[in-house]
Design a protein around this nucleic acid. Structure first.
Lengths: 199, 199
DNA sequence: CGTCTATTTGAATGTACTCAAAAGCGGTGG
DNA sequence: CCACCGCTTTTGAGTACATTCAAATAGACG
């Protein structure tokens, strides 16, 4: 059950030692709270109705987090890639069932820490507590920014922004998912791309 | 400059003493960090480009927080009423200029604490630190929920939800602002209301 | 090569938008 | 108290844009 350094992304150690400022022994203790999990493409890390029990570091792979409307339509809120954290923070904190689906787009390798272990680590290592709070803040700012974008930009503007900010996404994420993220139908995205490429 | 108990909303004291669990002396200390401010209707608490220096408790009144697009269109992200906190947490934390406008809809009376004083209070009183972290979390959950709503619901569904959840809003907020909050034009909201009332 | 899925294209539809004007409402001053 | 002014809300007409339904093409994988 113990994780070796070779099994984790170099960025993981780098972040917690250099940025968060953990000592070697604190880092070892923190790491001991994690277990490794593999989730194949198309499988779910979380489904609406379930309680989220883990906070997970995405070591390898990509995921999409989405909600489902009454008619079964899926609406992608965000993607995640290597070195992102995935999970439903609200469900994790409150213990209430999630409204979110989190699905692996590519095969995923995760480092998971349970709610209980995370609480323990936060209690023992104040820097982890600070790190977690800072993470929630930043996540919040990103979400607020996304809300502002969805409200104030046209589909074309959202598309151009995405391609400018994250061109790599198009190498890994099917267009239908990108369409959902941009809040348009796949057909509309296809036409939009055609229009732009003709210029 | 000192605030008297009679000058603050009973809920303010109630929250910090009963819910946050401050002692009387901690509460007195916390309160001493605040100053009172009045912002008349239509005036701004914050404009895009400015750095947010205060976290403010809305004692009396209502505000709207919005972004502006390239063409000058306003997009309301949320309203605030009595006993809500207003400000741009991101700008407050990072010290970077805000992208948000916060405007008084009704005459407002605020209890403001500066960034510096808030930091001091958080450092002196751990419960304030906890309270502030919990506040950011909850704000985040609300924002995420709103993002999901904007993406997955029709204008009609959003309107019906709003009227069910916050019917009082319609007593205090002009319809044009509610339209912006729902992400539709005022004319469309008017037609939507007519359609629904004919059933 | 064949099957399954993703993407593109086409045609018709619908819904919210824009522009424009009228009606309603509130406040002010004569 | 009423007349006027400014602002909000409603109504009307026409338009634009993304959507829907349907089908064709392209790509991926066994």
């Amino acid at each position: 059950m113990h994780l070796y350094r070779s099994e984790i992304s170099p960025l993981f150690a780098e972040t917690f030692i250099n940025k968060v400022g953990l000592t070697e022994s604190e880092f070892e203790s923190f790491l001991s709270g994690f277990r490794r999990e593999f989730v194949p493409r198309k499988y779910f890390l979380l489904k609406a109705g379930q309680v989220c029990n883990d906070h997970s570091y995405l070591n390898v792979g990509s995921t999409r987090t989405y909600t489902m409307d009454d008619k079964g339509g899926e609406h992608i809120l965000f993607f995640a890639f290597e070195d992102w954290w995935v999970g439903d923070l609200e469900s994790l904190e409150t213990g209430l069932p999630s409204n979110l689906y989190i699905q692996a787009i590519e095969d995923c390798e995760l480092l998971c820490i349970s709610k209980m272990d995370l609480i323990k680590q936060k209690a023992c290592i104040p820097k982890i507590q600070e790190w977690h709070n800072a993470k929630i803040s930043k996540t919040h700012y990103r979400t607020l920014n996304r809300l502002a974008e969805v409200k104030s930009q046209t589909p074309e503007e959202r598309y151009v922004n995405l391609i400018n900010k994250h061109p790599q996404i198009f190498q890994r994420i099917p267009l239908q998912y990108i369409a959902s993220y941009l809040d348009i139908e796949p057909q509309s995205l296809s036409r939009l791309r055609k229009r732009l490429s003709e210029k």
